[in-house]
Design a binder for these strands. Structure first.
Lengths: 230, 230
DNA sequence: AAATATTTGTCCGTATGTATC
DNA sequence: TGATACATACGGACAAATATT
């Protein structure tokens, strides 16, 4: 670490270097990081500075430390997103919700063809059960919100695109905060979700796409324009 | 193995308490936190523990500390969160680049109409200068890579969508890492970027959209299918 | 089963650089 | 200019939890 002409704080620098180390070494969940002593030597910083960097990762749920054993990578979780978005993002910023909803609509409509092709009969059955519950649930209830979320999760869960999957989950986590704060407008009617599943049961892509567009033109999604092309 | 009975680590506890303090006091961006000493006393922990908690917030971009002045809240940004989602979430190296490129293509084509409408003559001039440099740069060089990214940044920088902006920026960060590792295939030819800017100079959306599609059908983007609709 | 070594958790002290008055 | 307040950074020390011999 070049300390002669450094301008940035050491703990910020250390954090990025450790993150880079994890990426470069392709460390997987369950793998252990070097000990604090080793990392201090590798980065050329004191133990305090190193811990400020490493404990940042632990606070975020990326790693877990245990005395006597060491520090290991965790399975990635959106928990830290949830915790922080609650406190810092969801405060008097009404347009952020629009941006979240718009991005969800854009992504799901853009990837729906791949989703359609990936869906197995088993998942379609689960989707059917989900939508049936949705139709008998109280609209705008917490239960309805959860079922809508499950509906979206099921639609894309077999699509083999980890990045998209994580991104959709992150969007969901963020929207959840708005819902808790009572600022989430109504979701589309259950009937529109039902039409999507009916198209899946008939394995009719045209009908599926049509139903998806209808779904995403109602409720909270209504005013979110998306550029769509042929 | 009894984790229930184990007392929680102090730095995790301190982190949550400080966050709660921010919410309770309704602190806004620009407001200052109590000094380290005051917080130590308030929470009843040592300075080291307190710093491990507070520096976690700074690493996440939630606060900023300055010697002699104190610590203040920052404007919330998704950038850090998204970068870490991308860094830690999908670690399958081989597919990740495809997913990154595909997502960039999807987002830029989906939001290009809004981008077109938002662009000012000043930015178009900067785009022109950027593309001119690109045409005289050595293809596949580091300079060409940087100019391509500047091209994309300029296209969307006036679009008033913070979330999209942060996401594109996070994708850029990740692609940079692939480029450093020499794993980034060739970008589209400079001529295709030039056609985009020519359409902007003529304020012709049809030509712009056409040029964008051509750009995103070449080089690294070639094999990335995107669902497009009418 | 016990002793020892390893690793993280927590605290203290000190020196330095920087901003403010 | 000087004094004060604050964050930055380093090092040492001991405790607690775990692993190893």
């Amino acid at each position: 670490m070049d300390r002669a002409n450094r301008t940035e704080k050491l703990y910020l620098q250390a954090f990025r270097e450790i993150r880079q180390y994890i990426v470069d070494e392709n460390l997987q969940p369950g793998d252990t990081l070097p000990t604090e002593q080793q990392l201090c030597q590798k980065l050329g910083v004191s133990r305090n500075v190193l811990r400020e960097a490493i404990k940042s990762m632990e606070v975020m749920g990326l790693i877990e430390a245990c005395p006597g054993r060491g520090t290991e990578l965790c399975e990635f979780s959106y928990e830290f997103l949830l915790q922080n978005v609650i406190c810092f993002a969801g405060r008097d910023q009404s347009r952020r919700l629009d941006e979240l909803v718009n991005l969800q609509k854009t992504l799901e409509l853009s990837y729906m063809r791949q989703a359609f092709q990936s869906l197995s009969p088993e998942t379609v059955k689960e989707l059917r059960a989900c939508v049936n519950s949705l139709q008998s649930a109280e609209p705008a209830s917490l239960q309805a919100f959860e079922l809508h979320h499950r509906f979206h999760t099921l639609l894309f869960r077999e699509l083999d695109n980890r990045l998209l999957h994580d991104l959709l989950s992150a969007l969901d986590v963020m929207q959840r905060q708005y819902h808790k704060a009572g600022r989430l407008p109504a979701l589309p009617e259950a009937e529109l979700a039902d039409a999507v599943v009916r198209a899946l049961e008939e394995y009719n892509y045209q009908a599926f796409a049509q139903a998806m567009f209808s779904y995403f033109s109602n409720g909270i999604f209504e005013k979110q324009d998306v550029l769509v092309y042929e």
